[in-house]
Write a protein that binds this DNA or RNA. Structure first.
Lengths: 345, 345
DNA sequence: ATGAAAGCGCTAACAA
DNA sequence: TTGTTAGCGCTTTCAT
């Protein structure tokens, strides 16, 4: 029985033998490299098709020193933000022949570091980190040293946070300005007691808080410690929290997550408050749940498609060496999507 | 300058030389295989740590014929169902040292087939297909032949659909029974004019429809053609559709997606109908939006965690050869989660 | 245009 | 316990 039709996967030697040429020639037609006569090429291609030959990816990888894979690390993919980002990036990269090795690290330092190393050990061409959790807690550079170490082996790209380092390229959102704008619009619409709700002290959440603080300070409105509240990003939790917690009076809620904002909407419904008449509410990220909410939720859209298209372009440019100068950090635009939970002027 | 500290990645020969042993010994301590004296092992491990050596994954793959990667194909990861499934599966597999190569195919036949082949060409250890879109449209086996072909190279696993074939292992949900039960509960609660809404004719949607049909037929209730409606899975679309379409009167809506159900909730709000008094509504999948909805949505939960845990176990058993007998098809349990959009007895 | 042969970095069978 | 060596399947340089 011919090897080609046996259970073993055929290799380049089989093809060469069957076509009556050398493996070098087969390799040439496989990769469209070097000169091959039309006749020989056809002959080889026919055999390849006939026995449905596929080159061994590992051997190819060994020889070329790449398997055209990008490692993507997210805290969890079961989150609209991450899954939407991965969806876009994967699409753009696949189009150019790059595949994605996906890993979920959770939010713990040890695991983030470990998964980064696991990804690296698979000999990826580049590493993409999505989510500001990877920026650490602001306790110092040691928190992110493992990322800089990774950058010594492959180019590292980030979405939604910035970290300094050679061979690291970041795309961040202007979270501060987004929340600043949102706060200012609420103030312009007459709100004076604005609550800021968040579930995190991440790089991103910190910038959002800053936007809020800048706005209230600038307008000399109350917005101190007691109007900044930390909660779980859970609708029912937030609803109950707002009913039970001992908070100063408020006529607006700005939150760093749509889920938190919806909790506020539920709270309003439970308390018989009218939205937006009695209470303005805004979310962040403009997830599908913003539309499921009743009334529909005002939110901030970070244009994930653009961020990802841009990040993918940078990855590809870097890998193909077509990049001239690549800025370390790029800031993406945002939009405030006003719906029914606010009434701006 | 020593190669180990140069820019080139060190290899096993460098380690061997520096430790004064042979590459075989280094390989042994790397893989914990064969006998190595404690002293030698320590020496080698020290060098490895010192120069931060990582074995070349491609070479390792070539030798072992595996890189411990599982290919996962989904129509899109920007969908709660898929991202939640991938999240669970990835977690279970990573724990056992397997990584995930993720690909998004969309819903078109050509692309599904192409992406399957791309994944295969990366020499994955197993292929996992998630989503009943891969079951085809029931137009014949040719629609899924590419899956059976894939199964000739690697074991294929599926979630949420069944297809016959050697080396294919499926985990399906009992969608028919779930919808049958839901329908029966509505009927038991006095509803007699039930609308069935779906956005698909997939394997899964077809089974759901069957559950509805079985229930209305059994109870001799109206449930013919004119009460089966196809819509887009889009909240606003469904809301408007229900307001404008020429439908027979209905006092309940059963839908195959939470998004559709929420559209019905929005419709009720727009028409001034009380839910559940005037209209029962049920969704499917129990996504987070079911809780964002007002009133909170009754839905069917397919226990994705269990499905994925089980699928991951089967994949691992198959790859490690620890499987005795592996059933081709397994049916997963479901639960009806009653919330505020229905009032069962 | 084609072929011979030397890697790529690792595993594992076989010797010692 | 350790070392030698032959693959694994491909790419690519250098002859021809």
């Amino acid at each position: 029985m011919d090897k080609a039709s046996g259970s073993e996967q055929a290799n380049i030697y089989d093809i060469a033998r069957m076509a009556g040429v050398s493996i070098a020639t087969v390799s040439r037609v496989l990769n469209n490299s070097g000169k091959v006569s039309e006749k020989t090429r056809r002959k080889v291609e026919e055999i390849i098709r006939e026995i449905d030959y596929t080159p061994n990816a590992f051997a190819q990888g060994l020889g070329l020193n790449t398997m055209h894979t990008i490692g993507i690390l997210v805290p969890t993919i079961a989150d609209t933000y991450m899954s939407s980002a991965v969806s876009y990036v994967e699409g753009f990269l696949a189009r150019e022949g790059y595949h994605c090795l996906l890993s979920c690290s959770g939010f713990l330092y040890e695991e983030k570091k470990l998964q980064t190393e696991m990804l690296l050990s698979k000999h990826i061409d580049a590493l993409l980190l999505i989510g500001s959790t990877y920026a650490g807690r602001g306790e110092g550079p040691h928190e992110t040293d493992y990322i800089r170490e990774a950058a010594q082996k492959v180019p590292v790209f980030t979405i939604n946070f910035n970290i300094e380092g050679e061979n690291i390229y970041c795309t961040v959102c202007d979270d501060r300005s987004a929340v600043y704008d949102m706060t200012m619009r609420m103030i312009a619409a007459g709100r004076e007691k604005i609550l800021f709700m968040t579930d995190s002290k991440s790089y991103s959440a910190t910038k959002k808080l800053q936007g809020y603080l800048d706005a209230v300070k600038e307008t000399r409105l109350p917005g101190g410690e007691d109007r900044i509240v930390y909660v779980k990003n859970d609708i029912a939790f937030v609803r109950d929290f707002l009913r039970e917690a001992d908070l100063p009076p408020f006529d607006a809620v700005i939150s760093t997550e749509d889920g938190i904002a919806i909790g506020a909407v539920k709270y309003a419904a439970a308390e018989g408050l009218r939205v937006p008449e009695d209470l303005f509410i805004s979310g962040y990220n403009n997830y599908p749940i913003a539309l499921a909410c009743e009334p529909e939720l005002t939110s901030i859209d970070n244009h994930m498609d653009q961020i990802c298209r841009h990040t993918a372009d940078r990855i590809l440019a870097r890998l193909k060496g077509t990049d001239q100068y690549m800025p370390h950090k790029v800031v993406a635009p945002y939009s405030i999507i006003e719906r029914k939970t606010t009434a701006f002027r």
